[in-house]
């Protein structure tokens, strides 16, 4: 009976040690929440960046198209001038 009691005490000591050591090496609830919030912020920023990249690509295409339109308009103007000259 005495032996069993000692065994019980030993186990209780061991368990308490594990618990204390385990608790002291991990982050607190607050810190874990801070990490989660940071992760969420990063995910939201990634979404925002993707949307902006798509908008940027769309605008680049529009600019290229407009530049081509301007070049065509200028070419058309030159051709019109030439034709008017040849009519005279």
């Amino acid at each position: 009976m005495k032996r069993a009691f000692r065994l019980f005490l030993g186990a209780a000591f061991l368990a308490a040690t594990f618990t204390i050591v385990g608790c002291s090496s991990g982050p607190s609830e607050e810190e874990l929440a801070q990490l989660e919030a940071l992760k969420a912020e990063v995910a939201s920023l990634q979404k925002e960046v993707s949307a902006k990249q798509a908008e940027n690509a769309g605008l680049q295409k529009q600019v290229a198209d407009k530049q081509a339109e301007l070049a065509a308009a200028m070419k058309e103007q030159d051709a019109t001038r030439d034709r008017l000259k040849s009519q005279q």
């Binding site: 594990f18 618990t19 385990g22 608790c23 991990g26 874990l32």
Partner: peptide, 10 residues
């Protein structure tokens, strides 16, 4: 208790 704490260390 130990396994709960082993999820992430400091």
């Amino acid at each position: 208790s130990v396994s709960a704490q082993t999820k992430i260390t400091k």
